[in-house]
């Protein structure tokens, strides 16, 4: 996944069972964003791998004032890349459980 300047990581161990999982997002390189992020804290949130889309969360982050609306795509892509990796890993490690 290309480096968007926004990092998204698991905020808990993933055992492949739960559909909702804790993620942590922070801006690693503010220069890559169009708008100025509100602060450079790490934002932790829960994401439902089955019911929600990265765009939902990105829009909520913008509504909550964390990011400028012009950065919706970058934030959504950063979350999407991490979610894809989590699902890919689950498929490989716990194929029968998926």
């Amino acid at each position: 996944a290309e480096d968007t300047g926004v990092r998204v990581e698991l905020a808990e161990e993933d055992h492949g069972r739960k559909s909702s999982i804790a993620l942590r997002l922070w801006v690693e390189d503010p220069k890559k964003l169009k708008g100025k992020p509100k602060d450079n804290g790490a934002i932790e949130f829960t994401f439902d791998l089955e019911k929600e889309t990265p765009d939902d969360v990105a829009q909520e982050m913008i509504d909550s004032g964390f990011f400028h609306e012009n950065d919706l795509k970058i934030v959504a892509k950063s979350i999407r890349d991490r979610v894809a990796l989590i699902l890919w890993r689950r498929e490989r490690i716990w194929p029968r459980m998926q």
Binding site: D29, N40, E44, F45, M61, D63
Partner: peptide, 27 residues
């Protein structure tokens, strides 16, 4: 504590905490 919590109208909670210095790229 240095944690702040923001709850979005759709109900999702965002918990903001400082990023460890080691995880921030050189500015």
């Amino acid at each position: 504590s240095s944690f702040t919590q923001v709850v979005h109208s759709a109900g999702r909670r965002f918990i903001v905490s400082p990023v460890p210095e080691s995880r921030l790229k050189e500015q």
